[in-house]
Design a protein around this nucleic acid. Structure first.
Length: 866
RNA sequence: GCCGGGGUGGCGGAACUGGUAGACGCGCCGGACUCAAAAUCCGGUUCUGGAAACAGAGUGCGGGUUCGAUUCCCGCCCCCGGCACCA
């Protein structure tokens, strides 16, 4: 009689064993087959949620798979420990952010350990520790020396009541989140990093990142937003109006100019015309939400100014238009209404002239200035018309000819414009990495000398919401100017937390080095072989990390230029939502774990009731787990109830990692049942006795069949874990094989050895997903070693050979029968056998056979006349 | 609007290179065990007809290529994610 499966009893001692043997420790010199498996580190919010759980389980499965295949693997963990929530918690509870953060880290570390992840805890780091962030400061100073970091003014959200700067997410409908005061825009000096200098490289290198999902590459390319075009100057009395255009070939079709409402020319016009001033005001009060902008009508007003066309000298009126953005290009455009949809709409609204300058080569395209057609913006198979000397040129030739003419006159130059802006890293916050600058009345802004790093953040301050406490801390502020020695004060701004996360993965290998940012160990592990995290970081974090890695590469700190070879973006975790509505239409949301669902005979949801009061609740759809819908499921509670292996198993089984995962209590039960069965089956097998060595000769048909299934499973699971990352199908294959193995009626020693081969293989195949139960069963099967070092089962190719295959027989493409044949049976023989099949012959009967297609070992398709 | 990803049983999902659609799991139905229930075990489960053998239909919709299409091509509908007056 074996003990029933009891994870609460078996899991903790196994984790202790791992901890004692320190078996997850990654070597410092891993060699050529090193595998760096990295998860995006969490913000220590206090509790592990399902998203974390899923992320780290994916990473752990990959890690354990490669470890079992004999590769050295680094799977580290750390904490993205600076940031606003710690300050908010401090405001709410009066606890210093440092204490709140470190308490959270301690709790979450315990939770992670309870899930049994194969993490090298010796390399743990937290970005709020001075031994980490000193290197932010150090590299910042290097960037300053090289001109990669610089200072300029930037716009921030200012809360006039709290006298503080607000982050974007603290501004709700234009008002401060705490005070409700209308937020003002303020210009303050800030530090920026010249990521735009790397725009071209960051964009071009995307093509080589074939281990990244297409959509992430597309999102980054969009974000960088490269436009190849020209800067064109339109002179006017006493100045010049500069615009950026990607279509200089259409220059002869420009009939007016348009500037953004914030453009200097617009302001000048506003000063002498009340109506213009009113229009500009009306533009700024318009909504800023995306939805509003999308439907916003194009509006404009003439300034009364005009400029000269740079080639014809013709006068072009200057308008102010609400669809021109000050933040892009020059904040001004040349309007070519015939060939730009926005200009077209505007021209028709205000009765402005439209001049066609592009005509397709093909016939049948008549320009109609009342109706927009897509070909109006074509670049291919078109010729210039109404463009004087340029008539007949195609896009490329027209572009070049006009560019040359403008360059000759000094009224234009070729330019590539990026949407990407420089990265502003100054934050007027307390809980972040101090920017290592000292302000001296005489010497100005002086970098903190390297020997004085780190500039430590005082950890005992408690923010109250009104400005940064650093700015009021005399102990922090007071210092001497490193240049002249006079009393000076420190910079109180801290760095954007994206700085912290831009290189943490390069610190892990060298984490204990207190004299250098990174050392040879980082080169030994980099680049990251597999990075796993949420799609929400597809743009900023990944772009900044790519930029930062380039800078470190140029400073000869690391050999790599691209940090992440392969990227896996895991899907969201979803759950059912349930609610009740009161008379006023207010909804109360109930947690799915508190709802009992009844189903009809077809399995459809018939009704649902709240367990607590037995009264009905309504189904609100499947949604992302969120506090607002009260549909979050706490992984810690599930681990307590079912054990880590069940939770890990379900979250890997329910969906492939890139897809969203629907949480289901019943599904968790299913995973639990499988493990219970596996436990029982392996113990039943052990009770049948210990077989001798496996002899592959002279096995019965059923034993050969069993071995074939076992080795097909080994082959499939290895491919699913190692190449496809479809953990759900790997688990399904293990389940299927265990179903067969448990039905395999062992007769004699030889067959017992086959069963033993099967169970010892399956226990290892599922080990990356369910390491605890696998370890326990591995030991029960008579092994002393750690399953992590047990090696991956090897495929015996000879076991895959089948004695008989099922070949499908189709008539006119429809399956009409199946025949058995030895592998490699000749086409003719297969054909004869197919025609002889009873059901097939009924369908062929006396019809004329037109053709017979034979795919050896697979299929015969007999095509007959209708 | 643009970019990316999807749409397959009652549900989550599988079918990897054009070759048996629905693996595996959930749910549901039936049975065994039990005084009974839970747990467990066994069987069934795409839909329609049929006792069954089997037949017909079937992978969002319409067309095409092919001996053969969930898979490739063309057109459309819907859903999800991202970006957006980007000149």
């Amino acid at each position: 009689m074996t003990e029933p499966y009891n994870p609460a009893a078996i899991e903790p001692p196994i984790r202790e064993r791992w901890e004692t043997s320190n078996c997850f420790r990654a070597p410092d010199e891993p060699g050529a087959d090193a595998f760096y498996c990295l998860s995006m580190f969490p913000y220590p919010s206090g509790h592990l949620h399902m998203g974390h759980m899923r992320n780290y389980t994916i990473s752990d499965v990959i890690t354990r798979f490669h470890r079992m295949n004999g590769r050295p693997v680094l799977q580290p963990m750390g904490w993205d420990a600076f940031g606003l929530p710690a300050e908010n918690a401090a405001i709410a509870r009066g606890v210093p952010p440092a204490k709140w953060t470190r308490d959270n880290i301690a709790h979450m570390r315990t939770q992670l350990k309870e899930l049994g992840f194969a993490i090298d805890w010796d390399r743990e780091l937290a970005t709020c520790n001075p031994d980490y962030y000193r290197w932010n400061q150090w590299l910042f100073l290097k960037m300053l020396e090289r001109g990669i970091a610089y200072k300029k003014t930037g716009t921030v959200n200012w809360d006039p009541v709290d006298q503080t700067v607000l982050a974007n997410e603290q501004v709700i409908d234009g008002k401060g989140w705490r005070t409700g005061a209308v937020v003002e825009k303020r210009e303050i000096p800030m530090y920026y990093l010249r990521i735009t200098d790397y725009a071209e490289d960051l964009l071009a290198a995307l093509d080589d990142l074939d281990g990244w999902p297409e959509r992430v590459r597309a999102m980054q390319a969009n974000w960088i937003g490269k436009s190849v075009g020209m800067e064109v100057v339109f002179p006017y009395d006493g100045g010049e109006l500069k615009v950026f255009t990607t279509r200089p070939d259409t220059l002869m079709g420009a009939t007016w100019m348009a500037v953004a409402p914030e453009h200097p020319l617009a302001r000048a016009a506003a000063e002498r015309d009340q109506e213009v001033a009113g229009f500009i005001r009306s533009c700024s009060t318009g909504g800023v939400s995306e939805a509003e902008l999308a439907v916003q009508e194009k509006r404009g007003i003439a300034t009364g100014f005009s400029v000269e066309h740079p080639l014809t000298g013709r006068e072009l009126p200057v308008w102010i238009a609400n669809y021109v953005l000050m933040g892009y290009g020059e904040g001004a455009i040349m309007a070519v209404p015939a060939h730009d949809e926005r200009d077209f709409e505007f021209a028709n609204k205000y009765g402005l002239p439209i001049t066609q300058v592009i005509q397709p080569e093909a016939d049948g395209h008549e320009y109609d200035s009342a109706q927009w057609h897509d070909w109006y913006t074509a670049k291919e198979n078109v010729r210039l018309v109404n463009s004087g000397a340029y008539d007949g040129l195609d896009f490329r030739a027209g572009f070049d000819a006009i560019a040359e003419a403008l360059e000759l006159k000094g009224l234009g130059r070729r330019r590539t414009q990026f949407r990407l802006r420089d990265w502003g890293i100054s934050r007027q916050r307390y809980w972040g990495c101090p920017i290592p600058i000292i302000h001296c009345d005489d010497c100005g802004d002086v970098p903190v000398p390297e020997k004085d790093l780190p500039v430590e953040l005082p950890e005992d301050l408690v923010p109250d919401g009104s400005g940064s406490p650093l700015a009021r801390s005399e102990a922090f502020l007071a210092c001497e100017c490193p240049k002249c020695g006079k009393p000076a004060r420190r910079e109180t701004d801290t760095m954007d937390t994206f700085v912290d996360s831009s290189w943490y993965f390069m610190r892990y290998p060298s984490v204990d080095n207190d004299s250098a940012m990174v050392d040879a160990r980082t080169d030994a592990w980099m680049p990251v072989d597999q990075y796993i995290g949420g799609i929400e970081h597809a743009i900023l974090h990944l772009l900044y990390a790519r930029f930062w890695t380039r800078v470190m590469n140029e400073l000869d700190l690391v050999k790599v230029r691209e940090p992440f070879s392969n990227l896996l973006t895991q899907g969201m975790v979803l759950a059912e939502t349930w609610y009740r509505e009161d008379e006023k239409g207010r909804k109360t949301w109930f947690n799915p774990s508190d709802v009992d669902v009844e189903r009809d005979a077809k399995g459809r949801i018939a009704s649902a009731r709240l367990a607590a009061d037995g009264q009905p609740v309504h189904f609100g759809g499947i949604e992302k787990m969120a506090k607002s819908k009260n549909n979050g499921v706490d992984p810690a509670a599930l681990v307590a109830q079912y054990g880590a292996d069940t939770v890990r198993l379900f979250s890997m089984f329910a969906a492939p990692p890139e897809q969203s995962l629907e949480w289901s209590e019943a599904g968790v039960e299913g995973a639990w049942r499988f493990l219970k069965r596996l436990w029982q089956q392996v113990h039943d097998h052990i009770a049948a006795g210990t077989p001798g060595a496996l002899a592959t000769d002279g096995l019965s048909d059923q034993a050969l069949e069993m071995r074939r299934r076992i080795h097909e499973t080994i082959s499939k699971v290895g491919d699913d874990f190692g190449r496809r990352y479809t953990f759900n199908t790997a688990i399904a294959a293990v389940m299927e094989c265990s179903n067969h193995l448990s039905r395999f009626e062992v007769e004699g020693e030889a067959e017992l050895a086959v069963a033993r081969e099967g169970w010892t293989s399956l226990v290892r195949l599922i080990a990356p997903v369910t390491p605890h139960i696998s370890q326990a069963l591995w030991a029960a099967l008579g092994h002393d070693d750690d399953i992590l070092d047990a090696g991956w089962p090897e495929v015996d190719e000879s076991a895959l050979v089948q004695q008989k295959l099922t070949v499908v027989v189709q008539v006119n493409g429809k399956v009409r029968g199946r025949i058995e044949a030895a592998p490699g049976t000749a086409r003719d023989a297969l054909q004869q056998q197919a025609l002889a099949e009873e059901n097939v012959s009924r369908f062929v009967a006396d019809k004329e056979i037109r053709k017979i297609i034979v795919i050896p070992d697979k299929l015969v398709n007999i095509v007959v006349a209708a």
